[in-house]
Structure formats: C-alpha cells, structure tokens
Amino acid sequence: MSKQLNKSLTVSPFFLFFLIHSTQSGVGLLNFQGKIIKGAEQDAWVSILLVGISFHLIIWLLYFLLKKSNNGDIMSLHQQLFGRWLGNVLNIFFYGYMLLIISTIIRSYLSVLVTWVFPYTPIWFLSLTMIFVISYLVVGGFRVITGICFWGMIIPSLLLLTVYFPFQYAYWTNLLPVFNHSLSDYFVSAKESILMYSGPEFLLIYYPFIKDNQNSQKWAHISQAYTTILYLFITIISFVYFSHGQLEHVTWPTLMMSKIIRFPFIERFEYIFIFLWLLVVLPPCCMALWGAIRVLKESFKFKPRMSLWISIIIVHFMVINVKSKVEVEEMGTFIRFVSSSFLYIYIPILFLFILILQAFKKAKSVGVN
C-alpha cells in the first residue's frame, strides 16, 4: 500500500500540531460565545470541554480509516469500499463540503470587514481580493500552506497577551451557579460549538503528505488538546467580562473585548485585531481549497489549474449570493449541520462498515479453511 509520498513533498509530523489547530481556528472564535450561552448559559464551558474531548475520539477514527486506505486518503478509501462510480459520487459530496467551508469562512470574515472597517466596499470586490490571496498561496503547494498554518498560529497567539485588559473588569460570580442545567441544555451548547472545532477532517486529504504518518497521531492529539484549552480559556474570559444578557445581544464578543484596549500610540486597537485575524482565517481556507483541488485531481484526473479555476468560481458565486446578515447566519447554521453530520455520523458509519467487512472476510476465510 502506498501511503507516503516522496519526502520532498512531505512535512515533519511535528507540523501536525500547527496544521490541525490552524484549521480549527477561524471567524467562529469572534462570535461563538453568544451562541453557546443559549443552552447551558454560564455552564456552557462544560460543553466546550466535552466537545473538545470528543474530537480526540474523532481523530482516532480518522487515523483508523486512513490506515485502511490504499493511498492514505478518503478519495481512495471511498473507491476501495464502494467501487469507482459510487466512490466518486461520495468524493463529489466531500468536494462540495470543502467549498462550503471556504465560502462560509470568507463570507463570515467579510461581514466583520464590512461592519467594522469597509462599510462602503462591495462584497464582490472583497471576495475577489481574498480569493486571489488564498489561490496564490494554494498554488505554492502543501508545504507553503503548512508555513501559513505555522505563522497563522504563532502571530495571532500574541493577541492572547491582550486578555490582561478584560481580566481587569472580570466578575467571577458570572460563572455561578455551577452545574445547574439539564443534559439537553448542555447538548444545545455543545451543538453550537462543534463548528469551531471542525478541521481535523482535512487530515483525510493531507495524510500522505505527513512523514512517517502512521506514527504521527500523538501530534494530532496534542494539537486538539491545545485547541480545547484555548477555547475553554476564551470562553471563561468572555463569561466573566460580559453578563449573560450582554452576550445574547453582542454580535462579536471577542472583538468587543478588544475595544477596551488603549495604547498611547494606538487609538483603535480593534482594527489591528481584525486585520491580524486574517492570518487566522487564511489557513482553513487554503487547506480547504487545496483539498478540493486534490479531490478533483485524484477522483477525476482533472488538472490542478482547471480544478483551481472551477473551485474559486464556485466559491465566489456562493459568497456574493449571501447578502444579508440573516443569510450569513443561515449559511453558518447549514455548515454546522453538515460538519456535525460528517464528523459524528458519517465517519463512525465508515468505521463500522470497515469493521463489518473485516469480520465478514475473516469468517469467510475461516469457512473456506
């Protein structure tokens, strides 16, 4: 089985730490607090923690599936399990999932730009600008994208130093009482937080590009643990800074916290925050576009340039046709449903299907003997 590409095209397993975390971060970090508090309220941090832990199981399932794949990716696994025709149909759905992720991230970030920075700039122009930047990076290949994931984690991490300012106004009583909600309330908050954890599924495409990939799983779990701790930290900061009523009505709580930051030489720190956040948005967009191109290449033998043009035209069309804030919210709700279904339903079904096939083959071989 060929699961490893030429070493000149691959990256060290250590970079999985940056690849997974960077693809999990995105625009959702700017406004997730108001969504998760609708369920378990001040206890929503419990749901954040539990969903983060559940993703360790998903990562384990992903590695199980990839080790069973002939070429170490989901495209070959689909063809291997369901035949070439049906397998390619499933690959098309996965391709659409990649494009939907890019479109949702771009359109959500453009909502922030239009509201805070460029209120009179047309969406189509901002969309083309972002797509151009993303395409330029994707053309550089997987190693360039890995570099973007690295810097997309390191540089924005400097923003964590700014939590000193909201901590000065923290009301820790906002976290009380603890554990006074029903399981259904925790489930509502957990459902709202799934989307911001999505990203490990890209491993289904770039797994062959990791050196010694079969022994790289520990870095994926370390990255997931870091992401969970970071989201838990941001959640608690938001809860002790804002009251519950405020979180229900503030559109971008993380950005609002940055408005209180003042330096003698910087009046509007939130502008720096917004533009630095572009480095957080780029990695998942680049990875999804690169993954979409690879799906078309491996499934239908499309040339990369043709696949790139097809993908960016579809993405641009999807972005510019989502006009109002309500439609942006509906788009986010839809991608959350798709992502949740893929990670918590489809991946376990594939896992069980492979187990059943293995058991059937084993029973058949025993019967023949």
Score class of each variant (00 low, 15 high):
Met1His: 09
Met1Gly: 14
Lys7Gln: 14
Ser8Phe: 12
Ser8Ile: 15
Val11Asp: 10
Pro13His: 13
Phe14Trp: 09
Phe14Met: 01
Leu16Glu: 07
Phe18Ser: 11
Leu19Val: 11
Thr23His: 06
Gln24Asp: 07
Ser25Asn: 12
Gly26Gln: 00
Asn31Leu: 09
Phe32Lys: 07
Ile37Arg: 03
Trp45Thr: 08
Ile48Leu: 13
Val51Tyr: 08
Val51Met: 05
His56Pro: 08
His56Thr: 03
Leu61Tyr: 12
Lys68Cys: 13
Asn70Ala: 15
Ser76His: 13
His78Arg: 09
Trp85Pro: 06
Val89Gln: 07
Val89Phe: 11
Leu90Asn: 13
Leu90His: 12
Met98Asn: 10
Ile106Phe: 01
Trp116Val: 00
Tyr120Asn: 12
Pro122Ile: 05
Trp124Glu: 15
Leu126Val: 01
Thr129Gln: 05
Met130Asp: 03
Ile134Val: 12
Val139Cys: 04
Phe142Pro: 06
Arg143His: 11
Ile145Tyr: 04
Thr146Tyr: 04
Gly147Cys: 07
Cys149Ile: 14
Gly152Trp: 01
Ile155Cys: 00
Ser157Gly: 12
Leu160His: 01
Leu160Lys: 03
Leu160Gly: 09
Tyr169Ser: 03
Ala170Ile: 15
Asn180His: 08
Asn180Tyr: 00
His181Lys: 13
Ser182Pro: 05
Ser184Trp: 11
Val188His: 03
Ala190Leu: 05
Gly199Ala: 07
Leu203Pro: 06
Leu204Ser: 08
Tyr206Ile: 10
Pro208Ile: 09
Ala220Ser: 14
His221Asn: 13
Ser223His: 07
Gln224His: 00
Leu230Ser: 10
Tyr231Leu: 15
Leu232Gln: 07
Phe233Ile: 14
Phe233Thr: 15
Ile234Gln: 03
Ile234Ser: 01
Ile234Pro: 00
Val240Leu: 02
Tyr241Gly: 01
Val250Tyr: 02
Val250Phe: 06
Thr251Trp: 09
Leu255Thr: 03
Leu255Lys: 05
Met256Arg: 11
Met256Ile: 03
Met257Leu: 10
Glu267Ile: 02
Glu267Ala: 09
Phe273Tyr: 11
Trp277Val: 08
Val280Asn: 10
Pro283Cys: 08
Cys285Gln: 03
Ala292Leu: 07
Val295Tyr: 05
Pro304Gln: 11
Pro304Arg: 14
Ser307Arg: 12
Leu308Gln: 11
Ile310Phe: 15
Ile312Arg: 12
Ile314Arg: 11
Val326Ile: 15
Arg336Val: 04
Ser339Val: 07
Ser341Val: 14
Ile347Trp: 01
Pro348Thr: 08
Ile349Glu: 02
Leu352Gln: 01
Leu352Val: 15
Leu355Val: 07
Ile356Thr: 08
Gln358Cys: 05
Gln358Tyr: 02
Lys361Met: 00
Lys361Tyr: 04
Lys364Tyr: 08
Val368Pro: 00
Asn369Pro: 05
